[in-house]
Every structure is written in C-alpha cells, then in structure tokens.
C-alpha cells in the first residue's frame, strides 16, 4: 500500500518537474534580455529571443506539424522513429557495456594483480574523447570480415555507446563485490565454501545495491555515447543525425531543433525507466533505505 502511494507521488512529482521546467523556460523568455546579457563583463545570460529560445507551445505545435514542405510526415513521428532507432543502439551498447563491466569487475575482484594492472587503464580509457575515437572504431570495424558478414556502421555506434557504459558498471560492481564484510567472508570460509560459491552466494548479492546506481549512470552514458557517435560517424536514421540536420535549419525554423531535442530527452527517459524497473525487481526484498544503518 505504502509502495503504491509513493509511486503515485513520484509520478506527480515528475509531471510537476516538467511543468516547472517549462514555466522556468517561459519566465526567462519573459524577463531575460533579447540579445543576451553580461554579468560583471562575462557573457553569461543566454538570448531570450524566439530564435534561441522558442516558446514551449511553438515547439509543441511544431511536433504536430509536417516535417517540411517536401516531407508530409509529422515531425513527432520522424523524431520518435529516430529516437526508437537510437534507443535500440543505446540498449545494445548498454547491455554489452554492462556485460563487459561486470566481467571486468569480477576478474578484478578475484585477482588483485589484475585490478592493480587494469584499473588505471580503465580510468585513462574514459579520458579519450569520443569524437576522436568514433572514426577509429568505424575504420577498425570496416576491416573486419567474417565470411560474407561485414561490420555494419551501426554496430560501431553501439560499440561506442558500450565504451562509455562499461566504465561506471565496472567501477560500481568492483566496489560492490568488495563490500562484503570480513565477518561474512570468514563465515563462508568456516562453511568450507569454494571461491566460486563465495562469489555467487555472497559477493554478487552484496554488489547489487552498488550495481543499481552504476546502471543508471551506464544508461545515461550509453545514450550520450550513441547520440555523439551517430553525429561523428554520420550514421543516418537516429536522433543524433536528426539533431544535426534540424540544427542547420535553426535560423529559419527554430522550434524544429528543439523538437529533436525533445526526442533525445524521451530516449534518455526510456533508458532510465528501463533501469528503474530493474532496480525495483532487484531491490524488492532489500531493507528499505532508512533501515540500512
């Protein structure tokens, strides 16, 4: 009962936050300087004119309109199908990244020498800019031929999503695997549990509360990875490409860019929702947060 009540409250809060964001946008448009402004000589205030910040209702109306004079499909359908295309790539990247992250964490937790050798490189891997990496992955993939099978470009994009997603999972899972108390480990030893048994019955379950927030980060990272990779590899069909395409028309049709951005936000929300479902399933029998102490 309490759970259902809090679910309703959470949904209400979510809607309220959306309304508040829209209200803040319109409030700034009403009082902000048309051509931007400076604070103490720094150009900080964004321009509030209709080109830079179209009205919320203009963006909404544009979503229902046709895409262009030549294409009669309404924009929301174009944006949604782009978001769906990117969602599938992000999901693939997220799943691959999660699998790789958990596998790396398991090996690192099991063998201290692997952890000491590998962990610094994992940290460094995340400092490589996506923009630089994307063409490399595409060209490496292009050299792969397995019989008649050729490496498609969309797979490179998913791999780049996975490249950003695996890191929080690896770090979070590693911390989780190491979170089992010394007493619990002695207990397993006193029961003559094998290393594999200790991993399965103690370390993995102990890691779950650490993995769940790591997956949230990974979901967001995979979306960012895929959108940026779509742009930098020039892959058509996804929301990243759509944002770039519509941005070129920004001066003549400003709400159109924001229509694509709304699509990207929906994509991010879908991924976050997926992780929330996982969270609820995995944590349903855990102590409520206030009783963790």
């Amino acid at each position: 009962m309490a759970r259902r009540g809090s679910a309703i409250r959470k949904t209400l809060l979510f809607v309220l936050a959306l309304v508040a964001a829209a209200a803040a946008w319109e409030l700034y448009k009403a009082i902000g300087p048309e051509d931007g402004g400076s604070i103490l000589g720094w150009k900080l205030l964004p321009r509030a004119n209709d080109v830079s910040m179209p009205h919320v209702w203009d963006v909404s109306a544009r979503l229902l309109d046709d895409e262009s004079r030549t294409s009669k499909r309404p924009i929301w359908r174009v944006v949604l199908s782009g978001a769906w295309y990117s969602f599938r790539l992000a999901l693939l990247g997220f799943l691959v990244g999660t699998a790789v992250g958990v596998a790396l964490a398991t090996v690192m937790a099991r063998f201290g020498i692997v952890k000491r050798g590998l962990l610094p490189y994992l940290v460094i891997s995340q400092t490589v800019p996506m923009i630089a990496l994307a063409p490399l992955v595409v060209s490496w993939g292009g050299k792969l031929h397995l019989g008649s099978w050729e490496w498609p470009k969309w797979l490179s994009v998913a791999v780049l999503g996975a490249f950003l997603a695996f890191f929080p999972v690896a770090v979070g899972t590693l911390r989780g695997l190491e979170s089992a108390s010394a007493t619990s480990i002695e207990l397993m030893r006193s029961f003559a549990a094998s290393g594999v048994q200790t991993m399965r019955k103690l370390r993995f379950p102990s890691a779950v509360p650490f993995v769940v927030p790591a997956l949230r980060l990974a979901a967001a990272a995979s979306v960012i990875g895929v959108v940026v990779a779509e742009i930098s590899t020039g892959l058509r069909g996804g929301i990243g490409r759509l944002i770039i395409e519509y941005a070129r028309q920004a001066s003549g049709d400003p709400p159109k860019v924001y229509a694509a951005v709304v699509g990207a936000a929906v994509l991010g929300l879908a991924m976050a929702g997926l992780v929330t479902v996982f969270d609820l399933v995995m944590m349903r029998r855990r102590p409520p947060a206030e009783e963790l102490t």
Binding site: S181, T183, S184, E186, L187, S190, K201, L202, P205, V208, R285, R286, P287
Partner: peptide, 11 residues
C-alpha cells in the same frame, strides 16, 4: 561458527 555481528545475508 557465530560472531559478534549476526552476519545474516539481508537478501
């Protein structure tokens, strides 16, 4: 064996 902390698995 039993320790000062009961050490039950919360899951």
């Amino acid at each position: 064996m039993a320790f000062q902390q009961a050490g039950l698995f919360e899951w």
